[in-house]
Structure formats: structure tokens, C-alpha cells
Nucleic acid binder design. Structure first.
Length: 368
RNA sequence: GUGGAUGUAGCUCAAUCGGCAGAGCACUGGUUUGUGGCACCAGUGGUUGUGGGUUCAAGUCCCACCAUCCACC
């Protein structure tokens, strides 16, 4: 089914438009190791960001459970008053093993990876991941999953689903042993795998739904080798998931990809693109991308985007942004990141309005 | 004025015994999708200071000139 078809056949069922007091869709910048690169926490707040993604693997390697607990969790450490979602570390297991084959292994017990920091062996199990995420103080925890590349064989996809379900069950069970006080403040999400195979996605989603989670993620790589969103399988998977729970499209994506996934029913997004691209001089606007390091902007006295309320657009010209990048000053990255994240927040807010209008809903069933 | 050193891409410098003139930076484009990323990929750019000479062949050897730097009068 195409996104446009889906939009037209919008069901009367109204999924909740809010979560943790936030309205959908939510875009969460990646603050992988407890910082959105090149931004202070205050600057991050000013972009309109309400929730961030931190990474269990990175924080586990750097601190471990006890030290993170003694620091009072990532919010205290960062001085962040917004919400926090912690990724389980499943993606790092994939990306590190993928980068250096033989540097670790995955067994049914958990994942063994060599730390990219000091080369020490790191063991990540579903239970350890939950404990670490509890120590981080996340509002949303993700169960450890067995992430694979977008182009995998059926056999690999089957194994990924099998392990992910098994780990999800253990993670849930471990989570339920936490005190009611701890549990009540946190949500637990699971990750649907199965690669490009519809029946495996169905099996994965079915098994996870049976275990029962507060939200479900589309796992794996969301784009194909040529960088195109895997819309078909994203769409298929979204339909397998309950509408009264948030659907999180992990790693999505470009502004267009987010628009598409929102139409498919996904409510939550995170992606490195706005932050990484900002650092490399690629700025987002509602008129498209703008590579500010191009010579054509050297004498351009317009702001990055007219009407954008961010610090960069309110105070500086494209010419100055060009200058800052050419001067290789860190301020270039900071202002560019502020702009891109402000843009992503404006984008998702515009999608909130669009969707509620399409549904003949003024957003009144949203939490304040 | 005398002696010496150096002149190669916009910049800093390579180039074996004389054998297809190169690199880094800069410049110009591009890539990036649950962040080991101040990253990566590609491209433009040359009458080797000038003029002669030797040689099959000269950035390289010889002569003159010019420029710059150093030392000494």
C-alpha cells in the first residue's frame, strides 16, 4: 500500500496523540553519549526539543551501572529537564561487529563486543541493558535486540527475530522485577525485526505483542543500499502494530522520510541526519537542503531560512554561516545544529497539525 | 659591493643516477538515516623565476640574468 492510499483510507480509530505528556509525532535528536554534539543542554532546549535519545552501550562502556546510578542518571548529569529514551545498544552490537568482523559475537545469552574506547570486552545482555537503562533514568527503555543490515538473508532474518523475541521476553521479565515505583515512571519498548520478509515481521510483531510492551519499534536499517526508505516493509509492519501504542521508526530520517512514516502511522523518530549533517554544513529548510559551504552563499545576506525562529536565523546571514564553516570554527557546527534541530521540531509540529486536521480532529484528545 | 643559499600548484614542500611533475593544505562539488564521524569520496589547479646551452631526453647538468633570504665588507 502506498502512503497516499493509506492517508485516504484513514480509519476512524483514533490513536492517542500524546505520550508522556508529549504530542505526536515526536522527533528525538540523538545525544548518543549524553550530549547532542556541539550543543549545550540549554541550546538543545531552545530548539524546542522535548525528548532525546541516549545510548545504553556508550554510557555502559563509559560508566557502567553503579557509576551512572551514583551520578543520579543522565538527566542530572546533563542538566536536562526533558524526556529521555535510551536505545538498548543493539544497534552498536551490529555496527561495531559490522565494522570490524571478528571483534565480537552474538550468542543467545547476549552480545560480546570489544569496546571502541579501550578495547576491553563488553558483555551486553537483555538484563544488563535494562539495568543500565534504569540507571540512566530513561523515560523509555528499549529491549536489547539483534539488529542486522538491511540486506540480509532469510536465515539471518529468522535468527534475528528468534533472538530478539527471546531477549525481549527476558528483558520484560527482568523489568517486571523492578519496584512498582521504578516501573510506573518508565515505558518499555520492543523492536520488531524480520528484515524485508513480511511473514517474519508478522511473526516478530506477533510474538512481541503477545509479551506486551508500551510501544513498538521498527528495527533494522530503514533505508536500502541506495538510501531509499524501505516504505513497503515499514508500511506493512506499522499495520501489524496496535494503534493505541506508539510506533517508533528508529533511525528515520530525512524530512521526507518522516513525512512518509508519519502517514504510515509512526509517531516517534530519531535520526543522526540533522545533527551530523549540520556539522558537515548541510542545512535543512522547508524549501529543501542548503549546503552552506557552497561558494554561492559567500555573499548571501539572507538568513538560512526566513521565518525560522532559531538563534542562527534570527541573528546571522548565510554569508556568516559560510564564513564560520570556512573558518573551521566550532560555532559553525553549533549554529548549524541549532538550526537543523529547530527545523526538525518545526517539521514535526507541522505534522501534528496536518494529521489532526486530516482526521477532523483539532488535537483535543491530546494531553495538554 | 663580495661570498653563499633558495626559486616547482593559491600556500608549505616532494620528485632516486638526467627518464611520464607529485603530496598535504586551500579551492570546487558530492556523501551521510536506532552517531567509534572536526569524518569520508571525488574534482579543478603547472610554459618547474626568465633567457640561452648540453643531451635521444632537463625540475635535475652548464652559462647569463632576475627575485628573495643569510653572512661579510
Amino acid at each position: 500500500m502506498k502512503p497516499s492510499d493509506l492517508a485516504q483510507s484513514a480509519q476512524p480509530v483514533k490513536p492517542p496523540l500524546s505520550f508522556l505528556g508529549l504530542q505526536y509525532p515526536i522527533f528525538m535528536p540523538d545525544a548518543t553519549s549524553g550530549v547532542v554534539r556541539s550543543l549545550t543542554t540549554r541550546q538543545l532546549e531552545e530548539t524546542g526539543t522535548e525528548m532525546i535519545v541516549v545510548n545504553t552501550f556508550h554510557l555502559y562502556v563509559q560508566y557502567g551501572i553503579e557509576k551512572m546510578e551514583s551520578l543520579g542518571g543522565i538527566k542530572t548529569l546533563m542538566g536536562w529537564t526533558g524526556k529521555v529514551l535510551s536505545d538498548s545498544g543493539g544497534f552498536q552490537v551490529y555496527s561495531l561487529l559490522h565494522r570490524k568482523p571478528g571483534s565480537g559475537k552474538v550468542t543467545s545469552y547476549g552480545a560480546y563486543v570489544r569496546s571502541p574506547v579501550d578495547g576491553k570486552k563488553v558483555v551486553l545482555t537483555p538484563e544488563i541493558s535494562i539495568d543500565m537503562q534504569a540507571a540512566i533514568g530513561s523515560d523509555v527503555l528499549i529491549v536489547l535486540d539483534d539488529c542486522r543490515s538491511s540486506e540480509i538473508s532469510r536465515k539471518e532474518a529468522e535468527e534475528s527475530v528468534r533472538l530478539t523475541t527471546q531477549w525481549a521476553r527476558r528483558a520484560k521479565s527482568h523489568f517486571m522485577k523492578k519496584s512498582p515505583e521504578v516501573r510506573s515512571k518508565r515505558k518499555l519498548f520492543a523492536v520488531v525485526h524480520g528484515g524485508p520478509f513480511e511473514d517474519l515481521r508478522e511473526k516478530s510483531a506477533g510474538e512481541l505483542i503477545e509479551i506486551g510492551f508500551d510501544g513498538y519499534c521498527f528495527g533494522g536499517w530503514p533505508v536500502d543500499a541506495s538510501g531509499r526508505l524501505v516504505t513497503e516493509i515499514l508500511s506493512y509492519t506499522a499495520e501489524l502494530l496496535p494503534d493505541d501504542k506508539p510506533k517508533y521508526a528508529m533511525g528515520v530520517g530525512t524530512p521526507d522520510d518522516i513525512r512518509v512514516c508519519r502517514e504510515l502511522g509512526y509517531a516517534m523518530f530519531d535520526c543522526v541526519l540533522p545533527t551530523r549533517n549540520a556539522r558537515h554544513g548541510l542545512l535543512y529548510t522547508f524549501d529543501g537542503e542548503l549546503r552552506i559551504t557552497r561558494a554561492q552563499y559567500q555573499f548571501d545576506i539572507e538568513p538560512i531560512e526566513n521565518g525560522c525562529p532559531c538563534e542562527a536565523c534570527r541573528n546571522y546571514t548565510r554569508a556568516y554561516m559560510y564564513h564560520l564553516f570556512k573558518a573551521s570554527d566550532a560555532t559553525a557546527k553549533t549554529l548549524a545544529t541549532i538550526h537543523n534541530l529547530t527545523f526538525y521540531q518545526r517539521l514535526t509540529r507541522s505534522l501534528r497539525e496536518t494529521r489532526s486536521q486530516e482526521k477532523g480532529d483539532s488535537g483535543k484528545n491530546a494531553d495538554a
